[in-house]
Each structure stands twice: as structure tokens, then as C-alpha cells.
């Protein structure tokens, strides 16, 4: 009796695991299946790199890929120094009380809903940009600034975590040799924590690539590759969100699945890269 209950429980657990795994694979399969008509209609390469011109029957997603990169890369680059500085203060430069408070602040930031970042961005940042630089205010720059703040807690938490996980023995040894806080941080802790920090950076980049609401609300959504920070842009994510579901079978509609596949591939590559780096780290220790 007890034995059979044990077996049943085990099988239930196994079934749940398999169900979850199947779901994940089916997301990709679903998108490939639904995007298929577009792949048959035009050449494989032109879908990714070609221009967007529905009147000519061209549904390349290059403007969206370019918009995504124009927003995600500068946002991550802008977030990097902010996060580096803050994680230095959280892990070694600040006093005990300050560290605790900063840690709480960063955790609080992870709990702020994305839509609220966008909402405040529209009404607080947009007028400033409109006055400072002219134009409509809906542009790459606005999205970059808000996105940089949005992803910084990800980076800060990963950075501080890997900075704190360095063997305290090494740090004490350096301290005994007379190294001050900044020296310990720069020459002992940083080099050892580098792998973990790179992971955090990649994950934050993945977040920036995959964020929908900020670019949807702030970047202006014009289907045209941006040529500067003050021009509007549409990201892959925003393109999916803005789809008009009226005609499910049109090729224009199918293009959102190519966007979906592109995003899936971008973020999956990031996750696999992080796992690879993580494994190298554990081998080294």
C-alpha cells in the first residue's frame, strides 16, 4: 500500500516535470509552425535582413532588429557604470548601515512594475527631452534612459553576489599585507569575481533585449531603422505587441512570429552563454 503510494507520487512529480519541459519546447515549435508561410513566401535571409515594405510585399524585420539593438545596447552600456559603482559601494566601500539600506533599495527596485517605469517616463522624462532636444520626445534616448534604470538592479544584484562570494581568506591575506579597501576590491576581489559579473552583464542585456513596455511606451514605434538617439524606433517586442489581429492569415501578421523566433534565439543564446561561463567558473574553483 505504502509502496504503491510512493510510486504514484513519484510518477506525478515526473509527469509535472515532463509537462513543464514540453511546454517550453512547444513555444518555439508553435512559433516556427505559424511563421512558416512567411518563410515559404520569401527567401530565408531576406526575412531577417530585408527592409519592411508591406506595399511591395516585403516583410523583413531588419528595422525592428536594428531598433532593438539601438535601444538595448546603449541601455546596457549606460547601466554598466551605474551598476558597477553601486555594487562596489554595496560590497566594500560603504559602511555597514549604508550597505544594508542600499541593498534594500535595489531589491525594492526589482519589485517596481515595468509599466510604472514607462508611465513615469512618459510624464516626467518626456517633457524634459522635448524641451532639451526638441522633437516629439518619443525617441530612442527616452527608452534608453528608463531601460538603463530598469535593468540596473539585475546587474547590481549579480555583481554584488559574485563580489561577495570571493573567498574571505584571500581578502584577509591582502588586508594583512596592508591593502586598503579600494586596493582589495580592485586587485583581489574583482579579478576573482569577473566570471559571475560577466554573467550578470549578459543577463541584464537579455532583459534589455526582451523588454516590451518601455520601448512600446517611450520609443515612438516608427517602423524605420533609427539613425540617431533622437529618432523614434520600434523594437521586436513592440512590433509583436502592436500587431493588429484582424487578419490572422496575412503575411504582415506572420512577421510577428519571425520577431518572436528572433527574440527566442537572442535570449536563449544569452542563457546558454551564462551557463557556459558558470561551468567554467566551477571548474576553476
Amino acid at each position: 500500500m505504502i509502496f504503491s503510494r510512493e510510486t504514484i507520487a513519484k510518477n506525478v512529480f515526473l509527469f509535472c516535470t515532463l509537462a513543464s519541459t514540453v511546454t517550453i519546447s512547444s513555444i518555439l515549435l508553435f512559433m516556427i509552425a505559424l511563421g512558416l508561410p512567411l518563410f515559404q513566401e520569401s527567401s530565408f535571409l531576406s526575412i531577417w535582413t530585408g527592409p519592411w515594405d508591406p506595399y511591395q510585399g516585403l516583410y523583413g524585420i531588419r528595422p525592428m532588429i536594428s531598433g532593438t539593438l539601438w535601444i538595448a545596447l546603449p541601455a546596457t552600456a549606460l547601466s554598466l557604470p551605474l551598476s558597477l559603482g553601486t555594487s562596489f559601494v554595496i560590497t566594500s566601500l560603504g559602511g555597514r548601515e549604508l550597505r544594508r539600506m542600499l541593498g534594500a533599495l535595489v531589491r525594492f527596485m526589482t519589485g517596481i512594475p515595468t509599466v510604472i517605469y514607462g508611465f513615469v517616463g512618459i510624464f516626467l522624462l518626456m517633457p524634459l527631452i522635448r524641451e532639451g532636444f526638441g522633437g516629439a520626445g518619443m525617441c530612442v534616448l527616452a527608452a534608453v534612459i528608463v531601460l538603463a534604470i530598469l535593468i540596473s538592479p539585475t546587474m547590481i544584484l549579480f555583481f554584488s553576489d559574485s563580489l561577495l562570494s570571493v573567498d574571505p581568506g584571500d581578502v584577509q591575506a591582502a588586508k594583512a599585507l596592508g591593502a586598503d579597501r579600494a586596493q582589495r576590491l580592485l586587485y583581489i576581489i574583482m579579478p576573482k569575481a569577473l566570471n559571475g559579473m560577466i554573467s550578470g552583464f549578459i543577463l541584464a542585456l537579455g532583459r534589455a533585449l526582451g523588454d516590451t513596455l518601455i520601448s512600446l511606451m517611450l520609443a515612438g514605434n516608427a517602423i524605420r531603422a533609427p539613425r540617431g538617439f533622437l529618432e523614434p524606433a520600434r523594437t521586436l517586442t513592440a512590433h509583436i505587441a502592436l500587431v493588429n489581429a484582424a487578419d490572422f492569415n496575412s503575411l504582415e501578421f506572420r512577421s510577428i512570429f519571425t520577431c518572436g523566433i528572433a527574440l527566442y534565439l537572442f535570449t536563449t543564446t544569452a542563457v546558454i552563454a551564462v551557463r557556459f561561463i558558470g561551468r567554467k567558473k566551477s571548474v576553476m574553483q
Binding site: 519546447s25 508553435f30 526582451g210 527566442y264
Partner: peptide
């Protein structure tokens, strides 16, 4: 499965929305 769940955790939410929509 660890890799599978990491990948799922990394998929942008809009893609999962697209899946639901389809």
C-alpha cells in the same frame, strides 16, 4: 531540465504572450 527552465525564465514575456495568443 535546469537548462530548460533557465531558457524559459529568459524568454521575453511578450513571446509567451504571443504563444498564448496563437
Amino acid at each position: 531540465s535546469g537548462m530548460f527552465f533557465d531558457i524559459l525564465a529568459g524568454i521575453p514575456s511578450i513571446v509567451i504572450g504571443l504563444f498564448g495568443f496563437s
